[in-house]
């Protein structure tokens, strides 16, 4: 019980009254949410619910209209070293002349600081991270020569190299084969067991039910947040997915019969 109280005292990510918009259309609206440490959390919701926007706003990557985000109780600007971010993969140039090892080294850049070079100790850590995601054998490959799943492993290794207490991922399972998904999920659970917080934008409610501890159900507003079993009820799901009816789980009652 005490450990629960402690994690609640300094949540991994706390979002207060966050409002963000793209050209007048609110994408997030007065969102309050808390994600505990030592838990594997998911942000789920229909397309356009503002899941990615929430992450980007929380990391200070886009301007918000109102509200704030705290990483372990402190504004994100002063806690960059506490959070690692795995963006959606299509954002980078796959033809870039860079090797797998160099990409993972980037995870160390914040700790190394400006101007200074990558140290031996950083390289050891990078090798460990690559080992952990099963990519050690590919360290010298150019990034574009990898498959989709392998690329995703590399970006997770980069986040691991940041040694951050909070890890934030945007759709890490999109376009990834089943085996890679299982591997990554196992790794995320390991991280959770080490006491870190892993927050994942995800759309497959089945996986969330099976493997996640905590969930935020989002549809422009925060519909519900809390332990998975409490949050993912037919009632809240209906409120989140509304008329879209885009539920990926089969255990829902047939709503169109209503």
């Amino acid at each position: 019980m005490r450990s629960t109280a402690e994690t609640l005292a300094a949540p991994a990510l706390e979002v207060r009254r966050l409002t963000a918009s793209y050209s007048s259309r609110p994408v997030l609206w007065d969102v309050d949410a808390t994600f505990p440490m030592g838990a594997l959390s998911a942000i789920v919701g229909p397309n356009g619910a503002g899941k990615s926007t929430l992450l980007k706003a929380a990391l200070g990557l886009i301007a918000t209209d109102a509200g704030q985000a705290l990483i372990q109780g402190r504004p994100v600007k002063t806690s960059r070293d506490r959070v690692a971010y795995v963006p959606q993969r299509d954002a980078v140039d796959w033809d870039f002349p860079i090797t797998v090892r160099e990409v993972v080294e980037m995870g160390r850049y914040a700790q190394i600081g400006w101007v200074r070079r990558v140290q031996r100790s950083d390289q050891t850590l990078v090798a460990d991270c690559l080992e952990r995601v099963g990519m050690a054998a590919y360290a010298s490959r150019q990034i574009g020569q990898l498959s989709g799943g392998q690329r995703q492993r590399v970006f997770i290794a980069r986040a691991l190299a940041q040694q951050a207490q909070v890890m934030v991922m945007d759709e890490p399972f999109a376009g990834v084969d089943a085996r890679t998904e299982a591997d990554i999920l196992g790794l995320l659970q390991e991280l959770r067991n080490e006491g870190r917080a892993v927050i994942v934008v995800h759309h497959d409610l089945g996986t969330v039910r099976a493997a996640f501890d905590w969930v935020l159900l989002l549809n422009v507003r925060a519909i519900a947040a809390g332990p998975v079993a409490d949050v993912l009820t037919p009632e809240t799901l209906r409120r989140a997915y509304g008329a879209a009816g885009g539920l990926e789980t089969e255990e829902q009652e047939p709503r169109w019969a209503a």
Binding site: R25, P26, W29, V220, R239, G242, A243, A244, R255
Partner: peptide
């Protein structure tokens, strides 16, 4: 109310709600 009941509305076209 839209999030909860919107699917019952049977809108005539692809119009989408603007939350504001």
């Amino acid at each position: 109310a839209w999030l909860e009941h919107g699917w019952q509305l049977q809108l005539p076209d692809a119009r989408e709600p603007n939350p504001s």
